[in-house]
Computed example of a mutant assay.
Amino acid sequence: MSGPPPAVAAVRVAVRADLARVAAETPGGLVLVACSGGADSLALAAATAFEAPAAGLRAGAVTVDHGLQEGSGAVAEAAAAACRALGLDPVVVTRVAVGRAGGPEAAARTARLAALDARAREAGAAAVLLAHTLDDQAETVLLGLARGSGTRSLAGMPALRGVLRRPLLDVPRATVRAACAQEGLVAWEDPANADRGLARARVRHDVLPLLEEALGPGVAAALARTARALRDDADALDALAEQAAGVVTDGPGGGCSAAVEDLLALPAALRRRLLRRAALAVGSPAGALSAAHVDALDALLLRWRGQGAVHLPGGAEARRSCGRLVLTRAGAPGQDAVTIS
């Protein structure tokens, strides 16, 4: 008796390994597949439906309707129907309101991840599986490189963060899409994937193919390997920054502050991490906060010439006053103070 086609087998093997880890932590638990109806997430849904029973797990799905395109509700319902046909249960469709902070891609991602986290908590799910592939990881690394966002950004997407898991990060997109076709699944193609007005689409269709042409095949895989190596480094530095976080205390204006001398005593890699964390804590959206903003904060410490406040995304600001770096939130000054911890 022959086995499944090679692409289907590759996706199932990746999912099987991830589900084994979930089952070891939460025997008999529920896993949810985040399914948009696209080829990648349908292939993940099919593999999960096949592998979950053998792992002793229950498997369902969540489809997020971002409401950004005409007919998005019908697309979401079709994706949910496909998941039910695969035997997934429960299957939930949830509509979100997408804001503007950080640009359209970042805002949609923020709304989607918040909805997935909420649905997972409501269902008591042990994990939510996302269908990001090796190529998605390579694109993320290149986007981080273009933003100059530092080690954490270049580390790409984590395979595991909280309830979210990405079992296909080592599987090429072509393999995942071939698996979808070999399973006989009819996929929806998000028009945003071809919209060169979006940075990720330009990286996907223009930048990566050009790099492959100029440098030879294997660029995406090399970028994904780089992300794994940098993630180890970033995790170690973040742990050290966590130990140093006590230098940042409550500050006026609903913000936080730290003595300039305490920050300058830290290695640059740790100091810059604390500056970024402080900016996030006073309301700067992660997707909009760039290395340039952190550079400006660092300049208040290293190149102090009496300059005025540094304005941060989200309306927050930072200034140097009386030997301290002070960050405040946007809005009225009566808001609760923030402690970085």
Rank of each mutant, 00 (worst) to 15 (best):
Gly3His: 05
Pro6His: 09
Ala10Arg: 08
Ala17Glu: 14
Asp18Lys: 08
Ala20Leu: 09
Ala24Lys: 03
Gly28Gln: 09
Gly28Tyr: 14
Gly28Leu: 07
Gly29Ala: 14
Val31Phe: 15
Gly37Phe: 02
Ala39Asn: 09
Asp40Arg: 10
Ala43Ile: 06
Ala45His: 02
Ala46Tyr: 02
Ala47Lys: 06
Thr48Asp: 04
Thr48Asn: 08
Phe50Thr: 15
Pro53Asp: 02
Ala55Leu: 00
Ala55Phe: 11
Leu57Ala: 02
Arg58Lys: 15
Val64Thr: 04
Val64Leu: 13
His66Asn: 06
Gln69Arg: 15
Gly71Cys: 07
Val75Trp: 10
Ala76Met: 10
Ala79Gln: 03
Ala80Gly: 14
Leu86Trp: 00
Asp89Gln: 13
Pro90Trp: 03
Val91Pro: 04
Gly99Asp: 11
Arg100Leu: 13
Gly102Ile: 12
Gly103Leu: 04
Gly103Glu: 04
Ala106Tyr: 10
Ala107Leu: 07
Ala108Asp: 04
Arg112Pro: 00
Leu113Cys: 07
Ala114Glu: 10
Leu116Cys: 06
Asp117Asn: 12
Ala123Asp: 07
Ala125Leu: 10
Ala126Met: 08
Leu129Gln: 03
Leu129Tyr: 00
Leu129Cys: 02
Leu130Glu: 12
Asp136Pro: 01
Glu139Arg: 10
Val141Phe: 09
Ala146Gln: 15
Ala146Ser: 13
Ser149Gly: 15
Leu154Phe: 02
Ala159Gly: 15
Arg161Ser: 14
Gly162Glu: 11
Val163Gln: 03
Arg165Pro: 04
Pro167Glu: 01
Asp170Gly: 15
Asp170Lys: 13
Val171Leu: 04
Pro172Trp: 11
Thr175Leu: 08
Thr175Glu: 08
Arg177Gly: 02
Cys180Gln: 08
Leu185Trp: 02
Ala187Cys: 11
Pro191Ile: 12
Gly197Trp: 00
Leu198Val: 03
Leu198Trp: 09
Ala199Lys: 05
Arg200Phe: 01
Arg200Val: 09
Arg200Gly: 12
Arg202Lys: 09
Leu208Glu: 05
Leu208Trp: 02
Pro217Leu: 06
Pro217Asn: 07
Ala224His: 15
Ala227Tyr: 05
Leu230Ala: 13
Asp232Leu: 15
Asp238Trp: 08
Leu240Gln: 15
Leu240Ile: 13
Ala241Ile: 09
Ala241Ser: 11
Ala245Glu: 06
Ala245Thr: 00
Val248Cys: 11
Gly251His: 05
Gly251Glu: 03
Pro252Ile: 15
Ala259Lys: 12
Glu261Asn: 04
Ala265Cys: 03
Ala265Pro: 08
Pro267Met: 13
Pro267Phe: 14
Ala268Thr: 15
Leu270Arg: 00
Leu270Ser: 09
Arg272Asn: 03
Leu274Arg: 05
Leu275Phe: 06
Arg276Ile: 05
Ala278Asp: 00
Val282Cys: 01
Gly283Val: 06
Ala286Lys: 10
Gly287Ile: 05
Ala291Asp: 14
Ala296Tyr: 01
Leu297Tyr: 12
Ala299Trp: 01
Leu300Trp: 04
Leu301Trp: 03
Leu302Tyr: 05
Leu302Ser: 08
Arg303Ile: 08
Arg305Ser: 12
Val310Cys: 10
His311Phe: 14
His311Met: 12
Leu312Tyr: 01
Arg320Met: 05
Ser321Ile: 09
Ser321Met: 09
Val326His: 07
Thr328Tyr: 10
Arg329Glu: 08
Ala330Cys: 04
Gly331Trp: 14
Gly331Cys: 10
Ala332Val: 05
Asp336Ser: 15
Val338Thr: 05
Val338Glu: 01
